[in-house]
Design a binder for these strands. Structure first.
Lengths: 419, 419
DNA sequence: CGAACTTTATTCAAAATGTTAAAGAAGTTA
DNA sequence: TAACTTCTTTAACATTTTGAATAAAGTTCG
């Protein structure tokens, strides 16, 4: 590939026809700063081949030489890094409450961020408009040139057809059915967009910047208003045949449990989600259990939220503690089942419940140890995410960025069938 | 690659350094008989490149030209096929009751088969010796030359370290702990061996010769003395990080259910396995339910087996029918949960319960429809295997054969890390 | 200190792998 | 029979990769 072609592709959609460009970039992203010799080891490319490929990538503006690394008894390596401002992506997280947008650089660092209320109750059209404006605002604020923005990634906690870029259904707001978000944004803003479920986007963020960096197989579960989740297999987000894989939230945990809005009974979501925690607390109080919570909501049981239960538990309230423990146990059953099926290295519990911390994590771990197969459970870690509220926007942006680091269709290992 | 190298590799372990040889062989295996033009389409290789690669493979004895295919309005394709007797593999299925061994050709057809009683009660040493002898016997009987036998694949329904080739634990027989089967067989017979869980081997058989041929993502569940299962993802057997992925049998289905010998309570296995069916039937009879089964076992409730329950159900016995229906419902919960997590194209119920047929399948399907997420369940098929008792040996042999059709470590898409 | 050794990076030629354009082969269609 | 398709191969050329040799820049140790 000649220099002209590469330079023409900066800011474009393609890195070049050679998949090894992407492979090298991905190696630098994951293990950088890193020298050429190590790149050769990681990628299985020969040493001499790395030199010209890296030279191309430096000329193209994606890589730069940095300081020298430590010698291992010989010539020290010249460390290579990504050039953070080579390209950018926009990440948007449309949550039930908050609308977040961020400009994210090639190193997956947030450059500029805006957080607003979603005001979803204003209706579909208003929310869409608000989203567009926020995107424009964050681009403006970041001072990044439009031609360096590779795309817009959007995560929302609904059912999404990722391939077509359509939001099939967003439970939180009326009117969000079959909305071709990708097309709308492409037309309005002239930038390509990618849509996905926000939990899946967060899973991606964990694998790039979180506890799961360089972990081959892991599971991510986020407990919030619903239970979102994502599954990472062989270093990639697993979507399944129809694009809906990894739905931990709708696993049947109690055959005779409460009805879920998916139609099933006793889904994990009906037992551990924020509203489920509130409901279970309310039921206990209605049966006459004494608790600090009554004070906290001034007697109005409809005011109970999971946050209040967590706060009460931390202040030593017995009922609240029990509710959270039982919540953890339910979640533990779901996680243990998933561990038996996926045998991952790691399970990450998302930031939605990070305030609960060990209150939730301890019973989860206990149940996993008791219920998952020993060979699988003794090697798995269960941890709480460290990405905080940024996971959503980061992941959404990574939906875009990851294409830069992913080889195109290659001869070897091709799996899909052309007819 | 020159002719000499290729020919030197017939019967050896490597096809050559070019991954596209394996890619083409795999394409012919999956879609053959097939012409060169279609091979080009499937593999994404260019037409002219296919010609010399196929020529090499023909010279090497792996492929042959066959009849002409139907014209699509132009020159008809020269169809290519695998040469069945280019190479062979031995498949061995060490079951609790039966010991099976077969010589299987490159097309995964059984050439010669031997079935014996396992006589596991005679102890580890005897069983091992019996296995060795049976392998030698089946090779002898098949008249296949030893140098054409690429390896021995062994499936057993225990816990297996596939990578090391060690049987960690076989619940059915005492003394089977930490047995380095791969090493033992390699030393005794001088042929390389591969060991795996028999349900995983069966999963492989389904993907090559069964209902799951050319299906990207599917789940296999075999209900027998235990519940074995395997998961196929992106066209490959998924093993997870520790090699124990896909354990559907130990999913918690009833939080307060019976104790399982894995230590957990209410595993799927404790509710739907053959012994579980017998136990549940016995419990019902002990509580005074009237049933044909009592006659069938001549009043001795310890004689109840799942086969008898199925037989009674087929003769219209109400209790037996209800037991089988409830069994199907439990299995359905497990399958529905797995569908939500994996979003497969297909679920195959193994031959172990094929005699029960729709007695089991109907409730499974009903529960899947009710409990799995609609987007996932409306596209999934649930079927009973058509491979019968051969699934085990076939799959075991395919553990060996599949290496012929799998590209080696390639630059592009390399995932593992060399340090 | 300096010679010997390591490790990293590059150069260059040869080998292999792959592509495109064009032509030949063998049918169908009208 | 002529025109058109589709399949396969040829030939010229471009790309990708490797291997051997070399240079660069340290560490190690007598």
């Amino acid at each position: 590939m000649d220099e002209k072609t590469i330079n023409a592709n900066i800011g474009g959609n393609k890195l070049g026809s050679n998949d090894n460009y992407a492979l090298i970039l991905d190696t630098v992203r994951r293990f950088g700063p890193i020298g050429r010799a190590d790149i050769a080891k990681f990628t299985n490319l020969s040493g001499p081949r790395v030199t010209p490929l890296v030279r191309d990538l430096i000329r193209a503006g994606f890589l730069k030489e940095d300081e020298f690394g430590a010698s291992k008894g010989g010539r020290p390596p010249i460390l290579l890094r990504l050039v953070p401002d080579a390209l950018f992506a926009i990440g948007v997280d449309i949550g039930a409450a908050k609308l977040r947008a961020a400009v994210v650089d090639l190193e997956a660092k947030i450059v500029t961020k805006i957080v607003k209320a979603t005001n979803a109750s204003e209706g579909k059209k208003a929310t869409l408009g608000r989203t567009m404006n926020t995107i424009l605002e964050v681009i403006e604020k970041s001072k990044v040139k439009t031609d360096k923005i590779k795309g817009i990634g959007i995560g929302l906690s609904g059912i999404v057809d990722h391939r077509e870029g359509v939001c099939l259904f967003w439970p939180n707001v009326e009117g969000w059915k079959n909305i071709p978000l990708k097309k709308i944004i492409g037309q309005e803003l002239g930038i390509e967009a990618v849509i996905d479920d926000s939990a899946r986007a967060m899973t991606l963020a964990e694998s790039w910047c979180g506890l799961a960096k360089n972990v081959e197989n892991f599971i991510f579960v986020n407990v919030g208003i619903g239970v979102g989740s994502g599954v990472f297999i062989h270093g990639e987000l697993y979507r399944g045949s129809g694009g809906t894989a990894g739905e931990l939230g709708h696993m049947t945990v109690d055959e005779n449990g409460p009805r879920c809005n998916c139609g099933n009974f006793g889904c994990l979501e009906t037992l551990v989600s924020g509203p489920a925690i509130a409901r279970r607390t309310r039921e206990a109080l209605e049966q006459g259990v004494v608790s600090l919570i009554e004070e906290l909501v001034e007697g109005d049981l409809n005011k109970i939220t999971s946050e209040i239960v967590v706060a009460a538990a931390k202040r030593g309230d017995k009922l609240a503690f029990n509710i959270m423990e039982k919540t953890g146990e339910y979640l533990g059953i779901g996680v243990a089942n998933a561990i038996n099926l996926f045998n991952p290295d790691l399970v990450i519990i998302g930031a939605g419940v990070s305030k609960a911390g060990r209150l939730l994590l301890d019973p989860v771990k206990r149940v996993v140890k008791a219920r998952a197969l020993q060979v699988a459970s003794e090697k798995v870690d269960v941890k709480i995410s460290i990405l905080g509220d940024d996971a959503g926007v980061l992941g959404a942006a990574i939906l875009v960025l990851k294409n830069i680091f992913t080889a195109g269709v290659s001869y070897v290992g091709r799996k899909s069938i052309p007819f």
